[in-house]
Write a protein that binds this DNA or RNA. Sequence first.
DNA 1: TTGTAGGCGTTATCAG
DNA 2: CTGATAACGCCTACAA
Lengths: 357, 357
Amino acid sequence: MKRSSKNSVGLADVALAAGVSTATVSLALQEGSRISASTRERVRLAIEQTGYRYNRAAAKLRTGQSFTVGLLITDIANPYFAALAAGAETVLDERGYMTFLLNSNDIGDRQARQLNKLMEHGVDGVLLSPADGTDLTTVQYLVDHGVPVVQVSRWVEGLSCDVVQPDNAALAAEATRHLIALGHRRIAFLGGTPSRSARVERLAGYTRALAEAGIAYDPELTPTGPPTRASGSILLRHVVGGTIPPTAALCYHDLMALGALQAARELGLRVGEDFAIIGFDDIAEAAICDPPLTTVHIDAESIGRSAAQHLLARLEGSVGPASRTIIPAHLVMRGSCGSHRFSPLPGAGSDTPGKRQ
Amino acid sequence: MKRSSKNSVGLADVALAAGVSTATVSLALQEGSRISASTRERVRLAIEQTGYRYNRAAAKLRTGQSFTVGLLITDIANPYFAALAAGAETVLDERGYMTFLLNSNDIGDRQARQLNKLMEHGVDGVLLSPADGTDLTTVQYLVDHGVPVVQVSRWVEGLSCDVVQPDNAALAAEATRHLIALGHRRIAFLGGTPSRSARVERLAGYTRALAEAGIAYDPELTPTGPPTRASGSILLRHVVGGTIPPTAALCYHDLMALGALQAARELGLRVGEDFAIIGFDDIAEAAICDPPLTTVHIDAESIGRSAAQHLLARLEGSVGPASRTIIPAHLVMRGSCGSHRFSPLPGAGSDTPGKRQ
DNA sequence: TTGTAGGCGTTATCAG
DNA sequence: CTGATAACGCCTACAA
């Protein structure tokens, strides 16, 4: 009861200085508690004098709440995830939570270790963009132990928790229809690893649009690969070197599209004229590269914000079944598939407009 | 001593299951402790059976160590800081630490609140890229209370703690000399807020190079502004609209340079021919914009890694005075200041080659 | 080599 | 409205 000799200053020291009990000080610290104004003031003063600092680790031990959240993504250096992180962090910070940043580098084992650490640190919840080859049980474990998980951008099969993502299939279909409307018949779909949900969904949309137009699906045009620039280059060279080369490519995301764009140029293709490329995400680079990239604009920051809000709702006791939240997105036409020549010029219509679904 | 009824499973439960004391279990958990192999095995088994999970909050309460670190930067959406964060997180994760991500948005007050929260959560150390208008005392407080701080990319006057950064002055001087060698005499220095160390240092290098060449310093050519694309555009328009417009601009960083580049094009200037632009950072966009941006390549990821290593050293007890670590960087010539026309084409030399310092 | 007995700073329960 | 007091789960002398 009279520990003011040692290290940090705690409730006991404040209590001593204010001439009250630690319980009173604790109460005085919370907003809506029945403590007389005068004691409250005395406590406030004592806190200033002693230089007291609230100790959340101790509080957590007692209450089980840490006011921390894990943000486990695959690659913070990807501008898409950086924006997502910014959105999530902002919301969480506003509500008094701190955010642990973890990079899985898309490695399942690493992610498993990190989920573990998150548990040891007692996070209240987790925002997860699952890595390739995610082991279901590693994340189910959290959920079973009362740690809500919200999946962002991607999701793993068989896991019952909230998801926040764009409507990948519809968007890919829209992009594909756009290419078809421009006259393309041989359209490649480049990259992404086979297992990941975002690729599966985008591929499904692509396939659907193809089928609608009566175009046969050719597996040679849909090679898979890691979501990197380099892989985008390689895959483009691969399909262009095939027996019947495509005239257009829809890419798993912008990073790959940018790689593909570079490779196309190196092959002597004039992107936007000889060859069309469409990406996903609309990262900053997409608007400024040459030619600027037609891409599906996804507001990563608002995905981050929304995911954080859903997580907070769960933390505040919202129950209900797992929800799936779709963040609106849309195709933005730029130079890389030539469509810019049609839309900006009124009355130049030499093409079917390609109805939006 | 026999709490296995309640919530989470703790050492006591494991001890019960293994038929030993909690102390023994605790000891068995640490590597180099004198515990018989047999008990160790029994404990291992009991841990599996019980589904025990280490509780770091409890450990922290006892030991004072949390194995967490704060990474407090101005803007995670800036690719430079995203790369820095990736580097830091990787090193920290390897060594068993978790990283809190905080975005100050370059707002001093926000940063102050966040430093506070960091203390409440009991972080072991902080990686800080100080916001504009940082109040010295808010960060000094941490240091005084035994929480080591390492400053990254920028630093605040009067704070005695490690700094990891590029040699801004030398690099800015090199870039400026390059422009001078290309024949430019009216060179602007665009943006950055006046108080921030990175700007002060870069401006000093710019001024020094000017002086060396006998070029008078003109304050009209060095307007300040927030470090954003938009501000880059505005400032370029501003100086170009001045009485004696510049023929070249060195920009506070790439984001601003990109904005300036766009504005220059909108003004009908052919960047790389009529007008030269140089940036700082070498973010991915710099290589791919049109024309590609000549810029100072700074390896943000290795700044992040190095800063994390310095922090870890402090956490492990390294004392010594505050250190300043310079991360090597260099000018990379691309299209935005015309120099590319000379170097790649052998024997095309219609210009002075522009000696590197 | 293992067990006992606090105590870290906070909150919650229960009296007064 | 306020005060004792007992946990929360872990670590660490010190004792056995």
